[in-house]
Design a protein around this nucleic acid. Structure first.
Lengths: 229, 229
DNA sequence: ATACACTGGTGTAATTTTTACACAATAGCT
DNA sequence: AGCTATTGTGTAAAAATTACACCAGTGTAT
């Protein structure tokens, strides 16, 4: 029976949950309750049930952790080194998820196994297991995908300013971009819809709000490189 | 014990093994010996042992299948739908491998579970399980990576002509490229070394041979986008 | 009300990259 | 010697990318 339990827990999902707030890119970390790595910060994750597909499992686990559904989740790598976990080989499929921190549906940390905190990606502590490596791999994938997938709009509120969009790009790519060139380029794609609305409650000139037009986006990019990516 | 065996076989590795021959991109398929999908063509693959990391397992399995070592292998996706395998949920980590078909060390089909055949990627039969989907996903990843990783040189013989290189790009990208522009671009990177040697045994003007200079390549691209990709 | 602080919004010129395109040179074969 | 097949080469136009600076609005403090 002990043997059986061991095999049941061979698989897990770990999530790098990205959020964007106050001009900074952040990820969600939990603090571990149990050994090994008790009290260490770690990526949220959980075991996969035996009768569950991994996509389902990823959605379930993320829901349990954040109370949110319908997030953009994407698998980016599977880690299965014999030594990555002290208890023996545990294979983990890593996903990243993108969430709007200022979402109406607030994140409910009470639903998390242990307290959860947002950490700026530029200043992460050492993480349990090989989670630092998992994070780095995920962050690099995110970076790459930024240029060919509409990732940014999952991290921003529905209505956003071009400055916010630019800050997000800068945070992900970790470099400064030129304001005029950035705007010219983004608008030239033709999938940003300018709204008749401006920022509220700011103590300076309010910026125009835009939203991402998914419909136009797919029309423009449907024949880019086959159907699936 | 029956239970135990069931858990032991939950994981597998499937490989999309690309090769390039006679101007065509091909993959290696086996024909299945057993039910389910007896006699169907399938991607070569095998179960992962319990005390084995997945990278190790991938190398071992590929070695058993082809007799080759030190191939460029890369994980590209993990498939774990409950219904992908009639026997229940079997998670498979998919890798692609790139091999030189005209390698000195010949492929030994005798070492394969069942006869193995090269198939042009443009004309594949229906494959067992979800292997068609796995292949497509892998092919798309290969395509993407072609533009930022020196993949092509793993598929060509050590010494190759620019025409061969172009044909390979055309096969992977599935489109015609302009000869002059292609050459200009490739040479501009500065990591192709022109040899003092020409093609032999051709009934037309022999082309210069080049080789890929891995040393220069890493020098040029080391600081492209962080260290790991 | 005026000045200040702060962010929003805009255009142009130079440079680089990408694209389109055609023909002479070479080697084997007859 | 002439035929055939493939190699190898340059230039001009178009498109994309880069670099760069100042006025316009809006709220706040005086």
């Amino acid at each position: 029976m002990e043997q059986l339990v061991k095999f049941e827990s061979e698989f897990s999902i770990d999530c790098v949950i990205f959020g964007f707030e106050a001009g900074e890119l952040k990820i969600l970390l939990i603090e571990r309750n149990d050994e090994p790595f008790k009290d260490w910060p770690a990526l949220p994750g959980n075991l996969v049930e035996n009768d569950e597909g991994i996509e389902e499992a990823a959605e379930r686990i993320l829901h349990e952790l954040t109370g949110l559904d319908d997030l953009h989740m994407e698998q980016f790598h599977t880690f299965g080194d014999v030594h990555r976990h002290p208890r023996g080989r545990i294979i983990t499929v890593a996903y990243y998820a993108l969430i709007r921190i200022d979402s109406q549906k607030e994140l409910k940390p009470g639903q998390l196994a242990k307290k959860a905190l947002w950490h700026t990606v530029n200043d992460l502590p050492k993480l349990a297991f090989d989670h630092t490596e998992i994070f780095k791999t995920g962050f690099n994938k995110l970076r790459r995908r930024l240029s060919y997938q509409p990732i940014a709009y999952e991290l921003l509120p529905e209505k956003f300013t071009l400055t916010q969009l630019q800050q997000l790009y800068e945070a992900i790519l970790n470099k400064k971009l030129d304001k005029r060139n950035f705007r010219k380029k983004m608008l030239s794609y033709g999938f940003l819809k300018e709204l008749d609305e401006k920022q509220k409650n700011v103590s300076f000139r309010a910026a125009k709000l835009y939203k991402f037009d998914r419909r136009k986006y797919s029309k423009i990019f449907q024949n880019e490189l086959g159907v699936d990516v």
